[in-house]
Simulated assay, not measured.
Amino acid sequence: MGPALLFAPADRPERFAKAADRADAVIIDLEDAVAPEAKAQAREHMVASGLDPATTMVRINALDTPDAALDLAALELSPFRTIMVAKAADPDAVAALADFTVVALCESAAGILAAPALAQLPNVVALMWGAEDLVASLGGTSSRFTAGPRTGDYRAVAMQARSQLLLAAGASGKVAIDSIYADFADLDGLAEESEDAVASGFGAKACIHPSQVAVVRDAYRPSDAAVAAARELLAAADAAGTGVFAFKGQMVDGPILLHARQTISRAGL
């Protein structure tokens, strides 16, 4: 799975192929993007989509809703076995989905608190968090500042939830997926947030518009200078042959070398 995941509403099948061409993986959305009266036909579109199961997942409705059972029944008629469970919060309910590979979408207070338990489930391969649903579950009105010098920045509770999910995923060796950036016209803001996601350890970021995909990919792709610096550092480590050594006026140890190896890995080298 590459770093740029793109949601595609399941009731808009004309968008499926375009999304697959542009993104690293497509999330066919049966939940928030689809009106209640359109969900039945949306499921039919999902089954008939023809997308590659290796690069496609399906977001189903929350497991405590009647729609979830209908989503799962439709999935049995499809080739898709990777699902994103909306509003995941009950580890037992997610564990019962043993026939599926699961991305647990933690987007409530209960979901964030359950993230460590969800991450330990063998059928869960990744965790994602959702900012607006989370704040709504707390009775709040916005996950980001909407005025003043911090306009666009996450509020403290959202940042805490983001960090908790990242730590839960990392502690269990699972991928952490960063939340969407809703203002799809603000590509500069998306670039800044994506760069922070990379530096913090998120393995991917979800997109809601095709124009966001290139921005996310650019953030995850190391520059030529960064790759060259990482190679130089690793070569110096091989030459030093010790656990800790000095390099260009700085002390280098295991974590610094791991950062360099991760840079090389993100470059696909």
Rank of each mutant, 00 (worst) to 15 (best):
E37W: 07
C106P: 05
D153S: 15
M251K: 13
L72G: 11
V26D: 06
R15I: 01
G243F: 12
V244G: 05
Q120K: 13
V125Q: 14
L113S: 14
I256W: 10
G268C: 01
A104V: 04
L166C: 02
L187F: 08
A48C: 05
V216G: 14
A96V: 10
K174C: 07
K248S: 11
Q212R: 04
L165F: 00
E31M: 09
E193W: 11
V244E: 05
I83V: 14
T82Q: 09
Q212L: 08
R221P: 07
V175H: 12
H259S: 08
D64I: 00
G201T: 02
E31C: 02
L233P: 11
L234C: 12
F80C: 04
V215L: 15
S163V: 04
P222C: 08
L72N: 07
F80V: 05
A156M: 13
V227H: 15
F247M: 08
A20C: 13
V252M: 13
L233C: 08
R261E: 11
V175A: 15
P36C: 01
A236M: 10
N123G: 06
T65W: 14
L121I: 03
V94K: 02
L258P: 03
A204V: 04
A62R: 08
R22L: 15
R144H: 07
A89P: 07
L30K: 10
A260H: 04
N123F: 07
L166E: 00
Y181F: 12
P3S: 06
A42G: 12
D153P: 09
L118P: 06
S172Y: 10
D24V: 00
A240V: 00
P13S: 06
P9H: 01
I177F: 03
E37S: 09
L51N: 13
M84A: 07
P53Q: 06
